[in-house]
Amino acid sequence: MNLDFSSMPQYTQLFINGLIMTIELTIISVAIGAVLGLIVALMKMSSVKILSFIGSAYVEIIRGTPLLVQILIIYNGLPQFGIKFPGFVVGIIALSMNSAGYVAEIIRSGIQAVDPGQMEASRSLGMSHSMAMRYVIIPQAIKNILPALGNEFVVMLKESSIVSVIGFADLTRQAEIVSSVTYRAFEPLMIIAVIYFVMTLVFSRLLSIFERRLRTGDTR
C-alpha cells in the first residue's frame, strides 16, 4: 500500500467547507430536534391517550428504523408530494426528526428521574401540576437533561456523515469529491476520520468539564 498525501493540501479549503457544513448541520438539527423532542416528550407523558400514543409511536418508529432509511424516505418521498427542497434542507429535516426521537426520550427520562416526592411536596403546598413542573421539576430535570443532550450532539456530529448519500456537501461528501478528482480513495477518508475523531474528542472533553460543573453546582 502506498500512501500519498502530497496532493491533499490544495484541497484544504474543501475540507474546511465540509467541516463547517457538518458543524452547522449538527447544531441546527440538534436545536430543532430539541424543540421537537420537547413537544414529543410532553405528548408522550400527556394523560390524553391519543397524544401519548402519537408521542410513543413517534419515538418507537424513529428509534426502530435506520437513520439512512429515514433520510432516503424523506429525500425520495417528499418530491412525490410535489415538495422539493435543496439537499441542505432535506438533511436538516431528516436529522432534526431523528434527533427529536432521541431527545424526547432524554427529556422524558430526565423528568422522570426527579424524585416523585418533589411533585407531591409541591402539590401538597397548593401548586398546580404545571406550576410544580415549571418551578420545581424542570429546573431539577435540566441537570439530568443537559449532559445527555450534549452527548446527543456528539453522536449527531458523527452520524450526520450519512447525509452525504443525498449529495449534501458535508465533510464526508467533500472527501468523496476530493477522492474523485485525485483518484486517491484512501487519503481523503483518513483525513476526515482524523477530523471527526478530533472533533468528537474535543466536544466530549468540553462536555465532561461542563457536566462536572453542573454536578458541583448541585452540592454548593
Partner: peptide, 29 residues
C-alpha cells in the same frame, strides 16, 4: 389546589427542594 393550601403535609423523607435555599423552599409556594 385551594383545598391543599389549607392542608399542610410533612413527609417522612422531607421532600425539600434541593435546588433552593432554606428560605427559597419556604417562600416558593
Amino acid at each position: 389546589n385551594m383545598i391543599r393550601q389549607k392542608v399542610g403535609m410533612v413527609f417522612q423523607h422531607f421532600n425539600l427542594f434541593p435546588n433552593m435555599t432554606a428560605i427559597g423552599n419556604i417562600t416558593l409556594a
